[in-house]
Every structure is written in structure tokens, then in C-alpha cells.
Design a protein around this nucleic acid. Structure first.
Lengths: 224, 224
DNA sequence: ATCAAAATCCCGCTTTTGGCGGATGTGTGG
DNA sequence: CCACACATCCGCCAAAAGCGGGATTTTGAT
């Protein structure tokens, strides 16, 4: 039995969704909340599997509440964000907060229960337009990486190793140490790869590494 | 009326999908193809709105065919990729090729016609697990930017300008030129910002800029 | 077996970089 | 008015980085 919580500040909307879901044999609405704070508390005590979360709410908005519930970590629940319109700005915050779904409130009832079951099983469900935007962004990013990635292929594997190390902010001496080779050798590799890639210095090499996808944001602790 | 083309090398599978779709009052299957080459030709002559494209095919695989059809550009059609299993590797190629959907063949018939209508309307439809992965990648990318962005605030506006220039691969002399200040001054700013951020050299500064979102992949021409 | 490419090392040389100190203006608040 | 902090500017100097050359060994492919 899927345990579901519905969070919305408008009681009527909340009841509407709850009735639709409770009508399904395998779904049970175990909690309702009208504010973000209530939602956090209820999530802790009721441990629902799936939370339907409205964005616009007084006190604390749905994204903030989502982030806190998921950060707490004592619940293994998954969150579907509900919204009336189609707002670019919220999507990224929502995904960052850890939401597994982002659907518009005018979704047909069957699609809603589908969405609940889907995310409960570990999948994700986004409104079609949002999926489209996500894809565009992704395709664009992969696009620019393509031609640069072939330039990468002109490097030897060792040179790629060195480039990766450079992109991690390492100095020549540090690279020498981690690769168990002499500092002079590192310089050789650096010079060679800079020349092959048409770059001037290691700073440009770092840029190149990020632009071609050899390095990606979110991999490093920038503690250095 | 939605004009749809079905591409699959197995005639039975092809007919199955075609029958399901033709059964819908608003959908018409205007073409079928058994190879990538046939698909390209049929796409040109029949101008379908939506193409259901199998991946595994002899002669030319579905992704290659998709890319060529969409690159041709004389058709405004949208493509849904069909696959039997759930293959990471193909997804990115598919999205890059310009596909608007990626669904498994064991999809329920109603969901398939939903998918066709959705992409015809400009949306996108991915298998739940794929959406999930796309989201994870995205969330990760947006992830660690927050705390680092605070460190950014400790810099003066001038220092942020310099940091941005460094992240664009500029040398001190070039930065001096674009900012209309002396080269020595640039160095001073560089030193100051490195110290404030706890970094050692400009290469690490580039890493920091990318990690905190000051610079993002896909902005630069890496022509330098 | 042989040849080419890659990987490893070394050395001097020039340029760039980064650290340190100091100078100037511009506010802000006592 | 005057410290004080801060941003901006500059010059000097040591260290690191990058360049050109050459040499040896390992590896891979033919």
C-alpha cells in the first residue's frame, strides 16, 4: 500500500487530490498539510512514501519544505511538486531540492495516480514541456562538447591524465607526485597537450576541460 | 489529424504499433519503414508529424537515421525512440540527435498514444527511469554552487570581474587591456582574490569559477 | 623483427605568475 | 577632523610555468 501525503494551503484542492488518490485500491492518503511547517512535521511522524507538494504556500513555500524534508534524511520519501502554471524559475530549484516530479495541477486524475506510482517505484515524472526544456538544455550542452571531445582524442592517454589533474587544480609538482613520475616529465606532457589543443597555459586547459566535459561542476571539493 | 510513421525492422512489431495508433480517431499512420534508409526517404516524402523509431536496425541504426532526418530540416517532425531495454549509452546520443521521446517497448498502448500526442504538441516523453537519471545529473550539476557562491560575495566587484576574465582563459596582460588598467594592478587583484578564496593559482581560480557557477560550460568558444 | 609512437627523463632559457610592500583616493563613523 | 577600512593602483623579486631541444626506454602495430 502506497502511503501518500498531500500538501496544499487550499483545503478544497487538498481534499480533491486526496479523494482521487484514496479512491485507488493501492493508495492510502495518510496525511494532509496546509503549510510547509506542518508538512515537515507530518513527514517525520507519518513517513509517507510519496508527497504531493504545492509550491505556493504561506509561511514556507513547497520547495523549501521539500528541501528540508529530504535533507532530514530519516524519511525515504519522494516528492512530486504541484503547480498551477509552468514556471521556469521554480523547476531548477525543485530539482535541486530533490523533487522527483513536477506536474501541473490540471493533470488528468489517471495521470496523477500514474505519476504517484511511477515515482514510488523510483522513476520520475515531469510535465511534458518541462521534460522538453530539460532535454534541450542537455542536448545543447552535449552539442558543444562533441567537437571539443574529438580534439581530446588527439591526446595520448597519459596526456589526458595530466589534463585531468590540471583541471583538478594540481600544480606540476603535485601531478608528478600522484603519477609517480618526474616533474620534468609532467612539464613535457603539459607542453605537448597545450600545443596539441592550441592552448596557451594551464588556465585555458582548465577551461577546455570543463567545456569539453572532461571535468564537470560538482565533482570537486573546492577545498584544495 | 496526426500523421505518424513507424520505423522498425521487425514487421510484426511494426504492424502492432501501427494498428494501435491507427485505432485512434485522431491518429493516422501514413508510413512504415523497416530500415533507416527507408525511414529517411519516407520522412521526406510523407512529412509525418511524429516518428516512432526503433534503435536496433540493420544498415543504419535508429539514432543515425533520426539525426539525418532532423538535420535535413525540411520536415518539422518529432521523433520518439523505442527500445527494448534501458540503455544508458543510447539515451545521450538520442537526445543529442534531437529525439523528443525515449520509451520502452513494453509501454502500455494508452501510454504510447499519449506519448505521441504529447510530443506532437511540443512536449517530451521519457521513460520514468530515464527522466530520473536526467534529473540526477542536472541536480548534481546545480548542487554545490550554493556555499561556494557565498565565498564569491567576499570579493569586490572588481575582483569578480578579474576572476571572470581568468575563467575565460585570459592572461594578466589581456585582462589589463580589456579593463583599461595596468598589468601590475591586475596582478594585485589576482593575488587578492586568490588569497580571499584560499586558492593557490589561476588554474584553481578557473576551477572555482566553474564549480560555483560563475562560469558554465557552453558559454565560450574555445578558440581562444 | 622492425619501425613508429608514446612515455619517460634532463637542461637551460624566457615569460608569466604570484607574493610583498607601498601609494593613492574614497568613504564611514566616532 | 581624523582614524580606519577598503578598493584601486603600481613596482620589485623569487618561484613557477612554458619552450626548445635532445636522449632513453617501453609499447604497439605491422
Amino acid at each position: 500500500m502506497l502511503r501518500v501525503m498531500v500538501v496544499d494551503d487550499q483545503a478544497l484542492v487538498r481534499r480533491g487530490f486526496a479523494l482521487v488518490l484514496d479512491n485507488e485500491p493501492d493508495i492510502e492518503v495518510v496525511a494532509e498539510a496546509g503549510t510547509g511547517v506542518e508538512a515537515i512535521e507530518a513527514a517525520r511522524t507519518q513517513q509517507p512514501d510519496v508527497i504531493l507538494m504545492d509550491i505556493r504556500m504561506p509561511e514556507m513555500d513547497g520547495l523549501e519544505a521539500t528541501a528540508r524534508i529530504l535533507e532530514a534524511g530519516d524519511t525515504a520519501c519522494r516528492v512530486i511538486i504541484l503547480t498551477t502554471f509552468d514556471p521556469d524559475e521554480y523547476v531548477f530549484r525543485a530539482l535541486r531540492a530533490g523533487a522527483s516530479g513536477f506536474v501541473l495541477k490540471d493533470i488528468p486524475p489517471e495521470a496523477l495516480v500514474d505519476a504517484v506510482r511511477t515515482v514510488a517505484e523510483g522513476g520520475a515524472m515531469l510535465a511534458p514541456g518541462i521534460t522538453q526544456r530539460l532535454i534541450s538544455q542537455f542536448a545543447q550542452k552535449l552539442g558543444s562538447e562533441r567537437d571539443l571531445a574529438e580534439r581530446l582524442q588527439r591526446l595520448t592517454s597519459r596526456e589526458r591524465e595530466v589534463l585531468t589533474a590540471i583541471a583538478a587544480g594540481k600544480s606540476n609538482a603535485e601531478i608528478a607526485e600522484t603519477l609517480f613520475i618526474g616533474a620534468a616529465t609532467v612539464k613535457s606532457h603539459v607542453s605537448s597537450l597545450l600545443s596539441k589543443l592550441g592552448l596557451r597555459d594551464r588556465a585555458q586547459a582548465v577551461v577546455f576541460a570543463y567545456e569539453c566535459g572532461l571535468a564537470t561542476p560538482g565533482e570537486h571539493d573546492v577545498g584544495f
